[in-house]
Design a binder for these strands. Sequence first.
RNA 1: CGGGACGUAGCGCAGCCUGGUUAGCGCGCCUGCUUUGGGAGCAGGAGGCCGGGAGUUCGAAUCUCCCCGUCCCGACCA
Length: 551
Amino acid sequence: MIARASQLFLPTLRDAPADAEALSHKLLVRGGFIRQVSAGLWTFLPLGWRVHRRVEQIIREEMDAIGGQEFLCPVLTPIELWQATGRDKIPELFHLRDRNSRAYILPITHEETFTFHAREIRSYRELPQLWYHFQVKDRDEPRPRGALLRLREFIMKDAYSFDRDEEGALASFEKNLAAYHRIFDRCGVEAHAVQAESGIMGGKLTMDFLAPSGSGENTLVRCERGDYAADAEIARGIPRAPEFPSRLDKPEEVETPGVVTCEALAEFLGVDLAATSKAMPVTKEDGSVVLALLRGDDRLAESKLLSALGSDSRPSTDEEIRAAFGAGGGSLGPVGFAGEVLADETLREGQFVAGANRDGYHLRGVEAARDYQPRFADIREPREGDRCPECGGRLVFQTAIEVGHIFNFGDKYSSGLEASFLDEDGVEKPLLGGSYGIGPARVMAAIVEQRGDEQGILWPASISPYDAHVIVLAGAEEIAAQAAEALSSTGRSVLLDDRDARAGEKFADADLIGVPLRITAGKKSLEDGLVDVRDRETGEERRVAPDEVAG
RNA sequence: CGGGACGUAGCGCAGCCUGGUUAGCGCGCCUGCUUUGGGAGCAGGAGGCCGGGAGUUCGAAUCUCCCCGUCCCGACCA
């Protein structure tokens, strides 16, 4: 296949739009891959759609390889399906009505629809099943951003597994996990599987695939030795040990006038900031006040707190604090507090300075278990400089894009939608489900983030819009056509830049568009009959006969 | 939803503060000639409801108010 650039709609731009921040945003727009229609709504132009489809095809092949069966479910969805699972209240849902004012939604994923179809599964003999489709998702995002990084409408490959028992569901999960590694591998994108969310539902089987990138909404925490990876929201890190002052047999009150921050306290008393403790009272949904206790140099990780409390919470109000502690913020501590103390793991060992629950006073030498009875949990935010919880290696932090998410949802949807089957033992049981999503557009964006530079993109050969980019310079039309034919006849797709443009423009566009293989026919070719073949990745260039470029 | 910024030609911007000819510049686009291996030169040309509405004024891109849109930070995120 040979595409003539002179006939394509391939609007490349010399400058990036002023409002573009992310590299992928800039380069995909400049390269003529995508164009914006409205906030979070983007059109894939022909070049961008070719890449998208290649990503899709890789996903399709790997899903089929593990027994996946491709469907196509509608976007427009009767709201009843979502009412049945209680997801109709999700704020991101777009709602609409037909002419008879029947209510519909535009789904954010398709668990309900696939589970609806799974109601036709009658017997354990029909299990397991693995179904998927590529379909539009709509989400009324509060803040779309970064072009393909966060869209309001996008295509997702979402797959759903249905199993008869936990063992089967786990097997389905693992098959998909392995397929995902192959997919990202083949797409040439670096993506790390990490434990997702803290799992208030107790769902252990939920993993995100995070692709490190210059822009993104997640932070990937990894051990430099490669044995640990997690999303920063739930990652565990081991901070340096504090330098404790000499041990006290019991807490000792010390006057600390006007000292309300841990930094000021450490300064005032001349102790290591890490040897102070930070008291953060929060109020749970049931109204009870819990004292979250951290080291003075740490920050509270909200999603860890959520997981540890098993309930939503908010910072307590001044009145609640006064009522629960008898003192105001700045002098709070665990000693003498009647409610629950949720202490970070870092407070297990050693003696810390803590608030005395008396305005203007603190206690030295406060020791967990001796002076107060906490429940321990990991609730601190990991940070640069922490050590790996597995091996003690150094942790590195990278911003990342979530390109995939897989999780088991048990009977969450099948119970609401009454999707059950008759098991071997004659008992009617709910199907156990799993959900496996990938956003091809985010994969594209991640690749550009990982492999782009100021000049342009460098697509991996597996998803490049074309296999080869043949540049025709004045006079060398015939030799260029010969090279293009040679490539095309071996099944490769060729972008033939036959535009009436200057060499510099063509080279610059080729760098921008990012096809990994570039062939140039020009004046030199008229002399020796050869063309330049340049590997964009290595910069390696050699002169070859046009008939042999495919070799 | 809170904070901030910005809407002037396809893209990037100036003009606005201090109201006053026909609203400018660079790139791109069209025509012609020259040029042709890393974004050419000359000449000519096309292209604007200055985001929208209301007001102030003899007169508004410019001042005031309202609305809309877009981007960034935060909150949120199945």
